[in-house]
């Protein structure tokens, strides 16, 4: 299945790009997507799946929209 990943801030820097399309096996989780993006998992890597905070074991559906970012904003 295919999922898209949008990356922000430090995650974008680490991945070297702002947008990825990942091909993942059926039943893949958020943790698989992080590995698939070539990122080292860190506690400050936050993941949204279809706009909502998701845990590492959240299962992904085909066409899921993922967002990788770190909470580096405020104000």
């Amino acid at each position: 299945m295919k999922v898209t990943v949008e990356l922000f801030g430090p995650q974008r820097e680490r991945a070297g790009q702002g947008r990825l399309v990942l091909e993942l096996p059926a039943g893949a989780t958020v943790a698989d997507a992080i590995r698939g993006a070539g990122l080292v998992d860190r506690v400050d890597l936050w993941v949204l799946v279809d706009g909502r905070r998701a845990t590492r074991d959240s299962a992904l559906a085909d066409g899921a929209r993922l967002t990788f970012f770190s909470p580096v904003g405020g104000g």
Partner: peptide
């Protein structure tokens, strides 16, 4: 809000 650098959302 937080601008465009990171997602700004509220659940």
């Amino acid at each position: 809000g937080l601008g465009i650098g990171i997602p700004d959302y509220a659940e």
